[in-house]
């Protein structure tokens, strides 16, 4: 078993560690979170102005009702296929529009990550590891299955929390 102890580098104190992490938090916040949230707000704005959001809401309502979610929640899952940050951004945007409530956003959180943004991960996870291409469809399918099942599990868990 690969258990080799990593050679201790120069010890940093807790404050330095925190500041170092906080600095990367600031970088991620400004260079990743902020652009993602703005993108999501603009997407939702476009969907809203064009009336597509309402249409998506109506069309997807019967399906999303299976998870106790309004039809508009489908946009969160679809965006998560392309980007996790985008999925969170759309969820946040729908929350601030009052379309999703806090409980529904919480239910969707694991699903956004479990979806595992297949668009990027085909190149990253699957490509880098050189996994058998015959299994690509199954692996992506598993991501989708995981995501959809997790919403139910979260819903169940939230009954007890």
């Amino acid at each position: 078993m690969a258990n080799n102890e990593v050679v201790q580098e120069k010890k940093k104190n807790i404050l330095d560690l925190f500041v170092e992490g906080a600095r990367s938090g600031f970088t991620i916040g400004t260079t990743s979170l902020l652009p993602n949230v703005i993108m999501a707000f603009v997407i939702i704005r476009v969907l809203e102005v064009t009336g597509l959001l309402k249409i998506i809401g109506i069309v997807c309502a019967p399906v999303m009702a299976l998870w106790g979610l309004p039809g508009e929640a489908a946009t969160v899952l679809v965006t998560a296929i392309m980007s996790m940050g985008g999925g969170i951004g759309v969820a946040v945007s729908l929350y601030s529009n009052g379309i999703l409530d806090a409980v529904q956003v919480t239910m969707l959180v694991p699903a956004i990550y479990l979806m595992g943004n297949p668009v990027q991960n085909v190149g990253r996870c699957l490509g880098i590891s050189g996994v058998n291409t015959k299994h690509y469809a199954m692996i992506i399918g598993i991501c989708v299955i995981n995501a959809l099942l997790s919403i139910w599990v979260m819903r169940l868990l939230l009954l007890f929390i």
């Binding site: 990367s24 938090g25 916040g29 979170l33 902020l34 949230v37 993108m39 946040v92 601030s96």
Partner: peptide, 19 residues
Amino acid sequence: DGFLFAISLIPAVILALGI
């Protein structure tokens, strides 16, 4: 609106990644 909202979210990211 997205910009201001994102700004209000960034402290949580800074704190979380610091920890």
